[in-house]
Amino acid sequence: MELYFMGTNAGVPSLERNVTSLALRLLDERRSFWLFDCGEGTQHQILRSPLKLSKLECIFITHLHGDHLFGLPGLLSSRAYQGGDTPLALYGPPGLKKYVNTSLELSESRINYKLEIVEHEGGCLFEDATFRVESAKLDHRIASYGYRVIEKDLPGKLDTELLKKYGITPGPLYGKLKRGESILTPEGKHLQPADVLGQVKKGRVVTILGDTRPCPAEIPLAEGADALVHEATFLHDLAETAYTYHHSTARQAAEAAKEAGAKSLYLTHFSSRYKYEDQLQRLKQEAEEVFPSSRLAREHELYPILRSGE
């Protein structure tokens, strides 16, 4: 599991940074990646990345401001021409379906894969055997949502030497134990999974928030997260400006991470006024004063999300 940023600027692109888009690479877990927001130019950023649109499985849109979704119609169309024929699920606030369908219809864009558009107002959006995705509304000028991606715990490693002593060889019985089912040994002994499985591997949590002012909803979304992605549009000397425009400062992002007990914080969505490295470092330093495990999101860099103890 890795974070890969393709846009870290707020509002409009600059020469240094593109507008918002972030990939969660799940190659080991699902052989796919998920996309969070799709600002203008995202498909160009993907061309410069190790990502392939044919591997895109889900897109989560935080809100309907242009810097977070103007790249969506082009990306959906291009995916059809880049080997993307598997189903794609698109999640976002009410109005997303109208925007996408109108754009594709008027441009006569054709896609050769199943596109499912799920409009939501928070709650549990997705769940399967490996992941669950939850969402909650934040505090922005329009409806803006945060997403909490929860990896389910993995069973511990089988003690194959012990299984040999019980006369159990690799095969279907191994699978039953890994699924949490008991089995019967050749000697008629009931063997429980806990008897032969090592310590459970705790699943990871990644929280990605849309644009927001500080609000109560962001804390449960980020609780204990291994990685929290939070906007840091301004330095705290512009806290009043941030409040007026429904955004957060770097310090406020760090305060949220600290209160939620997150393990690491990735700052993004920087105002275009912060063009130079020394200005960006001020954002980082401001956050570190409150939450030491803060870092600046850099475009086209991979950030591994490690399990505890790795």
Rank of each mutant, 00 (worst) to 15 (best):
D28H: 10
D28L: 11
D28G: 15
E29T: 05
E29N: 05
E29R: 01
E29V: 12
R30E: 03
R30L: 10
R30W: 06
R30Y: 08
R31D: 15
R31L: 03
R31I: 03
R31C: 04
S32W: 06
S32I: 06
S32T: 10
F33T: 09
F33K: 07
W34S: 13
W34L: 07
W34H: 05
W34M: 09
L35W: 05
L35F: 11
F36K: 12
D37H: 04
C38G: 01
C38F: 07
C38Y: 14
G39F: 10
G39N: 08
G39A: 08
E40Y: 08
E40M: 03
E40R: 11
E40G: 12
E40C: 06
G41M: 05
T42Y: 01
T42K: 04
T42G: 05
Q43F: 05
Q43R: 11
H44R: 14
H44S: 09
Q45W: 03
Q45P: 00
Q45H: 04
Q45I: 05
Q45T: 03
Q45L: 01
I46C: 10
L47G: 00
L47P: 00
L47K: 10
R48K: 10
S49W: 09
S49P: 01
P50F: 04
L51K: 05
L51T: 03
L51E: 09
K52D: 08
K52E: 04
K52N: 04
L53Y: 01
L53T: 14
L53M: 15
S54G: 03
S54T: 00
S54I: 00
S54E: 11
K55W: 04
K55E: 10
K55T: 02
L56F: 01
L56I: 06
E57H: 13
E57D: 12
C58L: 15
C58Q: 14
I59L: 04
I59M: 11
I59P: 07
I59G: 14
F60G: 10
F60L: 12
F60Q: 14
F60S: 05
I61K: 09
I61Y: 03
I61T: 12
I61R: 12
T62C: 15
T62L: 14
T62M: 06
T62S: 15
H63L: 02
H63D: 15
H65M: 05
H65D: 11
H65N: 11
H65L: 08
H65A: 09
H65S: 13
D67Q: 11
D67Y: 13
D67V: 03
D67A: 15
H68Q: 11
H68A: 11
L69E: 08
L69A: 02
L69W: 10
L69V: 10
F70L: 13
F70N: 07
F70K: 15
F70S: 13
G71C: 04
G71F: 06
G71T: 02
G71M: 06
G71R: 08
G71D: 02
L72G: 07
L72P: 04
L72C: 13
L72M: 07
L72N: 08
L72H: 14
G74A: 07
G74D: 08
G74V: 03
G74N: 01
G74R: 04
L75S: 10
L75Y: 06
L75H: 08
L76N: 00
L76V: 09
L76P: 03
L76K: 14
L76E: 05
S77T: 08
S77P: 00
S78V: 04
R79Q: 07
